[in-house]
Amino acid sequence: MGVRAIGVDGSPGSVARLAAALRSALDGDGPAVVPVRVAPGADPADPVLPAPVARAAAEGALPDGLAVVVATSGSTGEPRQVALTAAALRASAAATAARLGGPGRWLLTLPAEHVAGVQVVLRALLSGSQPVVQDVRDGFRPDGFARATARIGHGARRYTSLVPTQLARILDHGSAPLFALAGYDAVLVGGAALDAGLRARATDAGIRVVTTYGMSETCGGCVYDGVPLDGVRVTIEPGSGRVLLDGPVLAAGYLGDPDGTAAAFGPAGFRTTDLGSIAPDGTLTVLGRADDVVNTGGEKVAPAAVEQALLGVAGVRGACVVGLPDDEWGQVVGALVVPDDGAGGGPGDAVLRDAVRAACGRAAVPRVLRRAAAVPERGIGKPDRVAVAALLRSG
C-alpha cells in the first residue's frame, strides 16, 4: 500500500496535485496521502514524511484501507498523525451531502493540510468535480474569495467551509465578497466556536451558516448545528462529562502511537477532550475543552460560558477566557476582550463583569480583564489560549 507525502502551500497548483493523489488513494490505485505544509516558494515536490508515519510505513504498521494521514493541531502537545481510511472518508462525505441537500461544487479557502481542507477537496471529488481553489499563499482575502467564487459557474449547488475569522472578515468587508457568500447553498463554519453575535450578523446578511463540530479523528465535522450526521452517535461520558463520538467516520487510530490510540478509541467510540451536554431532542452543546476549565477557589468555571456572556454585551466582537495562576485562589478567570471600536474602547469593565456575573455567577467574573484589537490565533482560526494567557499576565 505505502504512503506518500504531498506538499501544499496554499496555491491552486499544489491543491491540484493533492487532489490527484487523493483520488488515487480513495480508489485504492495509489499510496495513502500525507498532506504536508511547505513554505510559499519552496519546492513542494518532495516533502519529508512525518517521523511517526515513516516509522509505521517501514514497520508495515499501516492500517488496512488507509487513504489519508492528517496531523492534529497539537494544542495539547505534539501533533498526532491520524489515520483515515477510504471507507471513513467516503462515509463522511456522503453524510455531509445528504445533510446539505445533495452534492455540489466546493470552494476551498482553508489550508489543505488540515482535515477541514482535505475534506473540501474530497467532497468535491466524490461529487464528480474538482474543487475551486482560492489562492491563500498570502493569507485569506475577501476580494480573493469573491474572485474564486466567480469561477464556480452557475447551475450546481455551491458549498464552502470557513473558520469564524474568515466569516467575520467577509461580513466586515461587505460589497462583492458578501454578495458572493450569500450565493452559497451552505457555508460550513468550524475550527472554533461561532459566537451567537457573529452568527446573527451572518444570518441577517442572508448567509446560510451551518456550524460544524468534529476533529481530525472523526474525518472533520460530524455534528452539524448540534445534530449528528447520519450514522454518527454522540454520547456524554458519565462522570467526566466528555463528549464521545462513534460511527463510520472514525479514524483507525494514531500512526506510531498505540498507547494514544488505546486511550482515545474504545467501545464507546472516540473520547474527545471536550465537555458537552445533550438536550432531550438529541442536540449537542459543546461546553468547551475539559483542560480549559478554570478552578478558582474550588469553583469550576467553563471559559466558553464566560465568553458567550461577554460576547452578548453590545460593543464586544471577540473574547477569549483563560485561567491564570493565583497564589490565593489557585486560578483566577482572565478575559481578553475585542471591542468593536478598537483595543482602547468598548464597554467599561464594570459592564462586562456585571454581564458575566448575571449569566454565570460570581465565581466566573474575570479578575483580570484586558482589551486587544484581536484574539491571537493558531492553526485555522482556533484561539491561541497560551498566547492569550501571556498577554493577560503581561498586563
Rank of each mutant, 00 (worst) to 15 (best):
G2T: 13
R4Y: 00
I6N: 11
I6T: 13
G7M: 11
S11N: 10
S11H: 12
S14V: 08
L18D: 04
R23V: 02
R23W: 02
L26I: 03
A39R: 15
G41S: 04
G41M: 04
A45C: 07
P50Y: 11
P50A: 09
A61P: 01
V69A: 09
A71T: 11
S73M: 01
S75A: 14
S75E: 09
Q81G: 05
Q81N: 11
T85Y: 14
T85G: 12
A88I: 08
L89P: 06
L89W: 07
R90A: 10
A94R: 15
A98C: 01
G104H: 09
G104F: 04
W106Q: 00
E113K: 07
H114W: 13
H114K: 05
V115K: 01
A124L: 07
L125V: 12
G128R: 11
V136L: 00
G139W: 00
F140L: 01
R141W: 08
A148Y: 10
A150Q: 08
R151M: 04
H154G: 09
R157H: 06
T160L: 14
P164Y: 12
R169M: 14
I170N: 06
D172W: 00
L178I: 10
F179P: 00
F179W: 09
A180L: 06
G183P: 00
A186T: 06
L188N: 05
L198S: 12
R199D: 04
A200P: 14
A200Q: 15
R201C: 11
R208G: 08
V210L: 10
Y213V: 08
S216D: 01
E217G: 07
G221F: 04
G226C: 02
G226W: 00
V227C: 03
L229D: 00
P238G: 00
S240G: 10
V243K: 00
L244I: 06
A251S: 13
L255M: 13
D259I: 14
D259S: 15
A263K: 10
A264V: 12
A268M: 08
R271H: 02
T272V: 00
L275V: 00
T285I: 01
D291N: 09
G298P: 09
A302V: 11
E307G: 15
E307W: 12
A309H: 10
V316D: 06
A319G: 07
C320E: 14
C320V: 10
V321I: 01
G323M: 13
D326V: 12
Q331C: 01
V333T: 06
V333N: 08
A335G: 08
A335F: 13
P339D: 02
D341Q: 15
G346D: 06
G348R: 08
V351S: 08
D354Q: 13
A355Y: 02
A358H: 08
A359Q: 13
A363F: 11
P366F: 00
R367Y: 04
A372H: 05
A374I: 03
E377S: 14
G379N: 04
P383D: 11
V386C: 03
L392E: 06
